[in-house]
Write a protein that binds this DNA or RNA. Structure first.
Length: 295
DNA sequence: GTCCGTCAAGCAGGC
DNA sequence: GCCTGCTTGACGGAC
């Protein structure tokens, strides 16, 4: 077990050991079956509670909920009042997480792009981000994090970043939880930090993406820039860690994390504390080499 | 019963 | 132009 700086570990969406998932979904065409949707959301939230307890028993301090916790919640076709129906259930799950000391996050996906040139994409993105913020409101997660990439560059990064800031500036409810993450092709840590600072929100450094798209920074320098942005919220800094799947093209996540990638992150962190979300196909199994006992 | 292509949605980059 | 990467599971049709 690593004994240096205090590092908390987590994994996304589901636990393969139990097994349990917060990411059950359905097709858009099935959305009209309200009773079915209700039941599916109840199962997602029930499994969230089960995973929280498993995490507490295994010393895992982070968990990322699936984006489909309430599938299509932000879609116009969603057929009932999910806040009225599931708000209390979410509140209970959030209370459990606080009691167990587990930090929660969500990661709206690639379609959420508030800096897009297309107005309809911007509007859909904002609606989805407001849904995520509402979920955190119900959970009552003061350290909750909604992780978002900055989307397209449209051949003009400065203009795109400015558009992103302009669109998000007035979204106070969302900005309470939002953190911006560097990606493996377009936005570097330095650029993400600049945008995050402009919005007064934190920046997440993804060490794997940084490896593929470092700009002019070492990982250590990238952390020097991004870790202080968490002072905007007075919560522990958060990072992402993953490794390349050797059988796939650059950017694909591996089943586990290579020891050298973990060691590189530890080396760059030094004595600084952080919460590390491990993005691996093997979910909680990928934490075993870092000292988490899965059995 | 199992396999397989498709399903709401956006981008960039490699071929 | 098409395919794949960015969380992965659901569903219907073919066999």
């Amino acid at each position: 077990m690593y004994t240096g700086a205090v590092i908390r570990l987590g994994y996304p969406t589901q636990n393969l050991t139990i097994p349990a998932s917060t990411n059950r979904t359905l097709r858009l065409a099935s959305l009209a079956d309200v009773e079915r949707v209700r039941e599916l959301v109840r199962e997602n939230v029930a499994d969230l509670k089960i995973i929280l307890r498993w995490n507490a028993e295994h010393g895992v301090g982070l968990f990322r909920m699936g984006q489909n916790l309430i599938p299509f919640a932000s879609h116009p076709a969603f057929a009932y009042d999910w806040e009225a129906e599931h708000g209390e259930d979410l509140r209970e799950a959030g209370e459990l997480a606080r009691n167990l000391g587990i930090r929660l996050s969500m990661h709206p996906g690639q379609y959420i792009n508030p800096g897009s040139l297309k107005p309809e994409v911007v509007e859909r993105s904002l609606t989805e981000l407001r849904y995520v913020a509402r979920v955190f409101d119900f959970l009552g997660s003061p350290d909750g994090v909604a992780v978002l990439h900055m989307g397209g560059a449209y051949e003009d990064k400065q203009a795109s970043a400015a558009r992103f800031v302009e669109v998000m500036r007035s979204e106070a409810g969302t900005l309470r939880y939002l953190a911006l993450e560097n990606d493996e092709r377009v936005w570097t840590v330095a650029e993400v930090v600049r945008t995050a600072v402009a919005l007064g929100i934190p920046a997440i450094t993804d060490a794997f993406h940084h490896d593929l798209n470092p700009g002019s920074l070492t990982l250590n320098e990238a952390l020097d820039l991004s870790l202080p942005t968490w002072g905007h919220r007075s919560v522990r800094p958060k990072l992402h860690l993953s490794s390349q799947d050797p059988a796939k093209q650059a950017g694909a996540h591996a089943y586990s994390v290579e020891s050298r990638d973990w060691q590189a992150l530890l080396g760059a962190l030094g004595s600084r504390e952080a919460d590390v979300m491990v993005e691996a196909k093997g979910k909680e199994y990928a934490l075993a080499p870092m000292g988490v006992e899965i059995g």
